[in-house]
């Protein structure tokens, strides 16, 4: 696998694989992230996995560029060579209940129309297969899940909503996600999930992590309400 290494601003380094996103690539990035954490210890203040990238943030004045570049080069190469033979970690699938209903999903009916299918067909497709968690971020607890069935591929709203409620289940391009907190957002809302995905009092604070397998399960209004969902 080929990759590039370069600066991301004045305190971070970025490694990017020239490869389409895949669970295999994400698992490699996670392994590289853990290895970097063990190696750089406190010099590394944070690290973030993207679809095809790993960004390493260093505490100010502790980034030694040549050393980091050489280490990344060597480690990324040996891990990507070794990874071919490793089996995927078996992780349990997180099941998230979703109330698919126009009462909580302003885009559900129009989107089904746009895609030329019934609302039932859309929700059945969305909840049919487990998704892979490619990245977290954008907002606390937000997790980019893929890959959506190509029949559900849809552009973002041309003007993002100022206010997307917490729990909104949404899709854009070939990704899906649940908005953990109220925020602005341009993805199409097709349902609502009553489960809390981000809680400062919990450990870890986010329910979902990169590398997780996530499946959506349709629930009715009564179940949605009993799980704390609001209309």
């Amino acid at each position: 696998m080929s990759f590039t290494i370069g600066p991301a601003g004045d305190t971070a380094m970025r490694l990017s694989f020239q490869e389409p996103p895949s669970p295999r690539l994400t698992r490699l990035l996670l392994q590289l992230q853990r290895t970097a954490q063990d190696y750089f210890l406190n010099a590394l203040s944070d690290s973030v996995v993207g679809y095809a990238t790993l960004t390493l943030f260093f505490t100010p004045l502790s980034l030694q560029r040549d050393q980091v570049t050489a280490w990344l080069e060597k480690t990324a190469r040996s891990l990507s060579d070794a990874q071919e033979t490793h089996a995927a970690d078996s992780k349990e699938t997180v099941v998230l209940p979703v109330f698919y209903d126009p009462a909580v999903a302003p885009d559900l009916v129009t989107l089904a129309d746009d895609l030329g299918m019934t609302v039932d067909a859309l929700t059945t497709l969305h909840s049919a297969t487990p998704y892979f968690a490619y990245a977290t971020g954008f907002a606390p607890g937000f997790c980019y899940l893929g890959t959506l069935d190509p029949r559900l591929k849809t552009p973002r709203l041309s003007t993002p909503r100022q206010r997307v409620p917490a729990g909104a289940v949404a899709i854009a391009d070939q990704q899906t996600a649940v908005y953990p907190c109220e925020s602005p957002g341009g993805w199409r809302i097709i349902g609502a999930c009553p489960v809390t995905l981000f809680d400062l009092a919990a450990t870890p604070v986010s329910t979902l992590a990169v590398g997780d397998s996530v499946r959506f399960e349709a629930i009715d209004e009564q179940t949605y309400r009993s799980l704390g969902g609001q209309l």
């Binding site: 601003g9 305190t11 970025r14 095809a52 960004t55 971020g137």
Partner: peptide, 12 residues
């Protein structure tokens, strides 16, 4: 229009 999402850094 958009690229694969990745980490942003200060000053980007």
């Amino acid at each position: 229009e958009s690229l694969l999402s990745e980490a942003t850094c200060q000053g980007a």
